[in-house]
Amino acid sequence: MSIKAENLVWKIGSKTVIDGISLVAEPGKTLGLLGPNGSGKTSLLRLLAGLKRPQSGQIMLDGEDIRTIGRRPIAQRVAFIEQHAATNSNLLVIDVVKLGRFPHRSMFSGWTPADDAAVNDALEQTGMAAKRNDRWQSLSGGEKQRTQLARALAQSPRELILDEPTNHLDIHHQIGLMRLVSSLPITSIIALHDLNHASMFCDRLVVMEAGKIVASGTPDEVLTQDLLRDVFSVEARVEISPHHRRPHIYFV
């Protein structure tokens, strides 16, 4: 196991947002996090990335309690992409990607060839190499999201946490981003809304409702007509697609 959560509880005031969640993300696999709006996906991702502390329960990174690891060592292995990464500053793409090396550098250390290699690899993988000297404000939505992904990859993470990364992207970029993330040899946890994408690109799925996990398993175990009706309130038919041999959902 790469990330393991046990009995997480997180409250804002008296409202319980995360209510006793346990899950395991296996190394190198892509874990999809599904659930209606307000079911607690974003909050869970923040807990898993170590950005918020749960009131009870614990999170283990390779068997080590995340509370005993400092912020910087966590950032050296866990990368996080928030839902709307916006800025009014007009950085170059290359400078944004270089931010990913921040946790690997001390206050006084210079820029090393290893840093350079990580940044170049990240730019190549995300297809942003040609745009490296473009300004952030001149990028399209898809390019901004790919730049954020490149920044996260430059962190050389072993775990990648993404919060609805395909929001606001056109279908070409949605598929491209999901394909890239699922092909990476690192552990990924992705919050998603598109159930068919979840089916196609995730190895395992976890479905949340009102801060609890209501289903988990492989896509064909989880994505059933009953679950879609109970959790997402939609009538649907689920068939195995002849194209990718995974469940495909038809909304009726």
């Binding site: 990335a49 928030e82 400078d95 931010l99 921040f102 946790p103 962190q155």
Partner: peptide, 15 residues
């Protein structure tokens, strides 16, 4: 520089 994308991203970069 790391604060360019807000507190959350800064925190995820180890700050």
């Amino acid at each position: 520089d790391a604060f360019a994308f807000g507190d959350e991203t800064a925190a995820s970069l180890g700050i």
